[in-house]
């Protein structure tokens, strides 16, 4: 009885959903509202943010949240298209979306490593 490998992609999708739900709102509030609108010197705040991102656990956390969110998105989009009846090329769909997520992950790691 052949066991499906869908479990692997679903685990990334699932982890991405949890990561996005838990951390993305906090990251958006922090970087989009708290830091830009906080009192004080902008340059200092920018330096503080750079310093925070320089700390390796924060880098790893950011990489994980962003990368897993890519996989969440890829899996959902793939299945959304299948729900809409795009079912003649399942392998192509999987390759396009998961390759996109892998590319996004590589880009995330490169960009965050250089910060």
């Amino acid at each position: 009885m052949k066991q499906s490998n869908e479990a692997f992609w679903w685990s990334l999708f699932s982890a991405g959903g949890v990561a996005a739900a838990l951390f993305l709102p906090a990251i958006v509030v922090l970087t989009g509202f708290v830091l830009p609108f906080a009192e004080g010197d902008t340059a200092t705040r920018h330096e503080q943010l750079r310093e925070l991102i320089g700390w390796w656990p924060v880098r790893v956390l950011l990489m994980l949240v962003i990368s897993l969110s890519f996989f969440h998105c890829a899996h959902r989009m793939r299945h959304l298209l299948m729900d809409f009846g795009v079912r003649s090329t399942p392998l192509l769909l999987a390759v396009v979306f998961y390759a996109g997520a892998i590319t996004g992950t590589v880009a995330t790691v490169v960009v965050i490593s250089r910060l």
Binding site: M1, Q3, S4, E6, A7, W10, D83
Partner: peptide
């Protein structure tokens, strides 16, 4: 669990 692990079991569900 082996019966449920095949594609036509739980993995066809997209949680609609």
């Amino acid at each position: 669990r082996k019966l449920l692990g095949v594609q036509e079991a739980v993995w066809e569900c997209t949680f609609v």
